[in-house]
């Protein structure tokens, strides 16, 4: 297994940054760590790339221990931190050559791995990295992280603040890298990117809430999700729906309302209430949860507990 974590905990003064994190990744998969700012994603990655020691627990990368074998681990990982670690006063090609040399290899030797990504910035190879656009910096940073052909790739929020088009392009690149057999551990605050991963871990306030296959998410058996649509603004019905006794939650999702009720059987009240409001084109459907629905239910359960 590429990454294996067992009860990893880390505190900074009185803040528990990570609590008892246990999971493992499969060989060659894309594992997404999804959670908002401050959830602990970066701290966890820094432990795995051997830049930080955990207070408790153990972790291995390709069977190597993050404490004892840190020198070996550093040779086999590619790491792209949130703030790209590029040398802004070196040119594009100089950055790439620098990273290759540090790892005792050459750009030529592993060029085939980065070719498709690097080709897009090649026309600017003599430009200083500091003068590149955000999207180009991202491509260069990824090329630099890959140039020594690592066994595993760790990407810390590579798509934060990047527009929808560039995000899509970036994920296409990750799938291609993954097809080379490189295991990818990637974090993101964008829930919709979960669908791009083989498995996702949801993290909030230092706690790993779940690990799941994004294509197979289920709410607990005592809950049912409904989607309500209308050509009228659904926002206007939010308060009334909150008022129905077996509504657990109701949230805006784009032009829809996503309503979770206590169980499917109890949903008659929701149906009859909506019918009684005389909305000409009201459309209420049962639905499976998406990643955001799922995460929000986990979050609200956690809030009730604490």
């Amino acid at each position: 297994m590429s990454f294996e974590l067992h009860s990893i905990s880390k505190s900074f003064q009185d803040v528990d940054a990570l609590r008892d994190i246990t999971f493992s990744t499969k060989e060659g998969e894309i594992f997404g760590l999804i959670g908002p700012d401050g959830a602990g994603k970066t701290t966890l990655f820094r432990i795995l790339v051997t830049l930080l020691n955990a207070d408790k627990g153990s972790a291995t990368v390709k069977g190597l221990d993050v404490r004892k074998d840190f020198r070996k681990i550093r040779k086999i990982i590619g790491y792209m931190p949130g703030r790209f670690s590029l040398y802004m006063d070196l040119s594009v090609i100089e950055n790439l050559q620098f990273y290759a040399t540090v790892f005792g290899t050459s750009v030529e030797k592993n060029y085939d791995l980065i070719k498709d990504i690097y080709m897009k910035i090649e026309p600017f190879k003599d430009r200083l990295a500091g003068k590149l656009s955000g999207g180009m910096k991202q491509k260069l940073a990824l090329s630099c992280a890959l140039i020594h052909r690592p066994d595993v790739l760790i990407l810390d929020e590579p798509t934060t603040g990047v527009d929808a088009v560039s995000r899509k392009e970036f994920w296409d690149m990750l799938h291609q890298i993954s097809s080379e057999g490189i295991t990818i551990l990637v974090s993101t605050p964008y829930m919709d990117e979960a669908a791009q991963c083989d498995r996702v871990g949801l993290i909030q306030k230092g706690t790993l809430l779940s690990v799941s296959d994004p294509a197979d998410l289920r709410l607990s058996a005592d809950k049912q999700l409904f989607i309500f649509k209308s050509s009228r603004k659904v926002y206007n019905y939010l308060e009334q729906i909150h008022g129905i006794s077996n509504t657990i939650s109701a949230w805006l999702f784009g032009d829809e309302l996503h309503i979770v009720t206590t169980s499917e059987r109890d949903a008659d009240l929701l149906r009859s209430s909506i019918a009684s409001w005389d909305i000409p084109d009201a459309d209420l459907r049962k639905s499976d949860p998406g990643i955001e629905d799922y995460f929000m239910q986990l979050l609200s359960v956690q809030t009730v507990k604490s």
Partner: peptide, 20 residues
């Protein structure tokens, strides 16, 4: 200007309720 970057999905929606 990008008021909801990096926040969790519940907080994001509560924020939009405030905007409405």
């Amino acid at each position: 200007d990008e008021p909801t970057g990096g926040v969790d999905p519940i907080t994001r929606r509560q924020f939009w309720e405030l905007i409405h």
